Amino acid sequence: MRGARMTKASARGVALLLAGSLALAACASDEEPEAGGDTGGGAAAENLEVGLAYDVGGRGDQSFNDSAYAGVEAAVEALGGEVQEFSPNEDGSDRVEGLANLAQEGFDPVIAVGFAYGESIAEVAEEFPDTTFAIVDSSVAELGVENVTGLLFAEEQGSFLAGAAAALKSETDHIGFVGGVEMPLIQKFEAGYVAGAKAVNPDIQVDVEYISPAGDFSGFGDPARGQILARSMYDAGADIVYHAAGGSGTGVFQAAAETGNRAIGVDSDQYQTVDDPELQAVIMTSMLKRVDNAVEGFITDYSEGNVQGGVDITNDLASDGVGLATSGGQIDDIQAQIEEYRQQIIDGEIEVPTTP
């Protein structure tokens, strides 16, 4: 039996917790912590107990979820403590229960990875007002819940640089974009990418496809479909395809390898995270969405008692919250142009669109 503080839940919350058992995989340090922090944070480092609820696909996607875990891992390594993980089932119907269980078991803060937790986290945060929550990719400003922080990103800015890089490196003046789910968040990636490419070459052709429609999150975990869509782009003459498709991005890399073309990764430095040398070779760059930095920073703020709930924190080019990876050296020759675009965005000379 762990010695963690149990937060108070309403009768409804308790009933929710008894609805069923979950597979929660714990990754604990040798030292057992005793208690979590208050709503505003401030837990002693050795008492840090982090709950991490993953997006679709869980840890091992070599992208979004893995980046979040890397941030938690870095914070725990620096501050001490432990982390307990939760992965939702395929349809996400157990998200509320998963978050509630983490809070009930005394983990604090609890971090939800992905916009799909938007409604769930508001419900659970009200049931556990003494627990500090954060959510990646979902605004909390309108929720009216004071113990949740939104960790947002200017994906369109980083994607603009990816589009500029693609246009500068393309030999066919024809590139592509594969999105996981056709929804506003992923359309930010598309909008920025197309704008960046057009800034370099107004006449460039940019093919756009989505793996699944809005509301169907399977598009983030369907590499076979990602491969088919990217292959059709390559066969039509595109020589670089950028994906914002989570675990489906592996299929885009496979299509690039099959056709002798190149691809652009997303979220993590995917040149470093893929475990297949053939796929690594085709990754020209990756649009870095520093979920790891945002999560680590939030946990550090929590440990120091500096979390301000009920607000959104946007990570952009100016804060190095987004950017382009240089691993592999394939964009070394265009760094001067990329840096010029980056500075123009930071200075407000270029306003990047957030919708296609």
Score class of each variant (00 low, 15 high):
residue 328 G to N: 12
residue 306 N to G: 15
residue 216 D to G: 05
residue 115 F to E: 13
residue 100 A to N: 05
residue 211 I to P: 04
residue 197 A to I: 02
residue 304 E to T: 11
residue 107 F to V: 13
residue 234 Y to L: 08
residue 69 Y to K: 04
residue 124 V to T: 05
residue 270 Q to N: 11
residue 183 M to F: 07
residue 84 Q to N: 01
residue 9 A to Q: 12
residue 327 S to E: 09
residue 11 A to D: 02
residue 79 L to F: 08
residue 302 Y to V: 01
residue 133 F to R: 00
residue 8 K to I: 11
residue 347 D to F: 13
residue 83 V to D: 08
residue 143 L to S: 09
residue 319 S to N: 07
residue 23 A to S: 10
residue 174 H to Q: 06
residue 283 I to V: 11
residue 333 D to P: 01
residue 113 V to W: 10
residue 315 N to Q: 06
residue 102 L to A: 03
residue 271 Y to E: 03
residue 1 M to G: 12
residue 224 A to P: 00
residue 261 N to R: 13
residue 172 T to L: 06
residue 338 I to M: 02
residue 225 R to V: 14
residue 238 A to I: 00
residue 144 G to K: 11
residue 230 A to P: 13
residue 135 I to A: 00
residue 4 A to M: 09
residue 239 D to S: 14
residue 53 A to S: 04
residue 23 A to M: 10
residue 23 A to N: 14
residue 134 A to I: 05
residue 169 K to E: 12
residue 166 A to M: 02
residue 199 A to Y: 13
residue 34 E to K: 12
residue 110 V to H: 06
residue 196 G to C: 03
residue 91 D to G: 07
residue 199 A to H: 04
residue 83 V to K: 00
residue 228 I to K: 13
residue 258 E to P: 13
residue 120 S to H: 03
residue 161 L to G: 06
residue 26 A to W: 11
residue 15 A to V: 01
residue 178 V to I: 10
residue 284 M to A: 05
residue 208 V to M: 09
residue 55 D to W: 05
residue 243 H to K: 03
residue 220 F to Q: 15
residue 12 R to S: 09
residue 248 S to W: 13
residue 225 R to C: 03
residue 184 P to Y: 08
residue 250 T to G: 15
residue 122 A to G: 08
residue 342 R to H: 15
residue 85 E to G: 04
residue 62 Q to I: 15
residue 159 S to R: 05
residue 141 A to L: 14
residue 31 E to F: 11
residue 155 E to N: 04
residue 351 E to N: 15
residue 340 E to K: 09
residue 242 Y to Q: 07
residue 30 D to I: 12
residue 151 L to V: 02
residue 213 P to D: 14
residue 73 E to Q: 15
residue 307 V to S: 03
residue 79 L to C: 07
residue 344 Q to K: 09
residue 146 E to A: 02
residue 271 Y to T: 06
residue 313 I to G: 04
residue 270 Q to H: 11
residue 68 A to V: 10
residue 285 T to K: 07
residue 209 E to P: 03
residue 179 G to P: 12
residue 301 D to S: 09
residue 324 L to W: 06
residue 106 G to Y: 00
residue 11 A to K: 12
residue 271 Y to H: 04
residue 270 Q to C: 02
residue 93 S to R: 11
residue 61 D to C: 08
residue 195 A to Q: 01
residue 246 G to R: 01
residue 239 D to V: 14
residue 308 Q to P: 05
residue 275 D to F: 05
residue 124 V to L: 04
residue 344 Q to A: 05
residue 290 R to T: 00
residue 150 G to L: 01
residue 245 A to H: 03
residue 38 D to N: 05
residue 43 A to D: 14
residue 234 Y to F: 09
residue 186 I to F: 04
residue 182 E to C: 05
residue 87 S to Q: 11
residue 235 D to R: 12
residue 25 A to M: 13
residue 177 F to I: 07
residue 157 Q to R: 14
residue 95 R to W: 00
residue 310 G to V: 04
residue 75 A to G: 04
residue 281 A to K: 14
residue 270 Q to G: 01
residue 28 A to Q: 14
residue 127 E to K: 00
residue 345 I to G: 02
residue 326 T to N: 15
residue 230 A to L: 08
residue 307 V to G: 15
residue 103 A to S: 06
residue 303 S to I: 02
residue 39 T to Q: 10
residue 199 A to W: 03
residue 27 C to P: 15
residue 301 D to Y: 09
residue 33 P to D: 08
residue 73 E to H: 12
residue 146 E to M: 00
residue 67 S to I: 13
residue 204 I to T: 09
residue 173 D to M: 07
residue 280 Q to F: 11
residue 120 S to C: 15
residue 323 G to K: 02
residue 113 V to P: 06
residue 150 G to N: 07
residue 238 A to D: 10
residue 49 E to P: 06
